[in-house]
Every structure is written in C-alpha cells, then in structure tokens.
C-alpha cells in the first residue's frame, strides 16, 4: 500500500516507470509490472515486469482507474504496466483544451 495524494511521486521496482499523482487521495495498492510501486527515489530496481503486466507505460500519458477516482501521469516510460488493486489502469482521454499561451 502507498499513500496517494496529488503531487506524490512513485517509481516502479521492476522497470524505469515513474509517475506523479494528478488526482486521488488515500491508501492504494498501486503496482507497476506486477510489483508494488515505491516512493520515487527510495527503491532499487530488480527483476522484470511479471507476465501479463508488461504492456508498458507511455511517457506523458495519464492513467486512471475504472471509476476515474485516481489519475496518475507517467513522467518516465517503462516496460511494466500500471494497475490499481490488481486491475490494469487505462490511458485517460487526451485533453482538448486549445492553446492559450
């Protein structure tokens, strides 16, 4: 379990993926490549993403859970894929705001 709050950053322990929480608070079972994510800068990488959890995480994409209560942004790409409570997170729809500056 890790504690989510906007701005909190986590890293995968089995690939190069790093994320920042955009939306959502509270304890969560956040995994990448099948292994629990840890606070950014605190963990060593070892092993490989588990089978079935190796579709990859794309740089700059937002990922959310089915209820859209939690959203994270991938700040570094990696081979493992993100899941919350064992359920894969999916790429959230791109923003369609026009450029204003």
């Amino acid at each position: 379990m890790v504690e989510l709050k906007p701005g909190a950053r986590f890293q995968s322990t089995v690939c190069t993926t790093e994320i920042i929480v955009v939306k959502g608070t509270g304890d969560a079972d956040l995994t990448c490549g099948g292994a629990p994510m840890v606070a950014a800068g605190t963990g060593e990488r070892s092993g490989e993403p588990a089978e079935g959890a190796a579709d990859g995480t794309l740089l700059g994409k937002r990922y959310s859970d089915a209820d859209d209560t939690i959203e994270v942004l991938a700040t570094k790409a990696g081979d493992g894929s993100l899941a919350l409570g064992g359920t894969p997170m999916t790429v959230a729809q791109a923003k369609t705001l026009p450029a204003s500056d």
Partner: peptide, 16 residues
C-alpha cells in the same frame, strides 16, 4: 513550482 506544474498538467497535453 506546484502552481506552475498544476497549471501545465491541468491545461496542456504532453506532446500534444
């Protein structure tokens, strides 16, 4: 930093 990063993440799509 939190103001500016929030603004960008909230209004701009990465590599959009």
């Amino acid at each position: 930093h939190r103001h500016l990063v929030s603004y960008i993440l909230g209004s701009v799509e990465f590599m959009g």
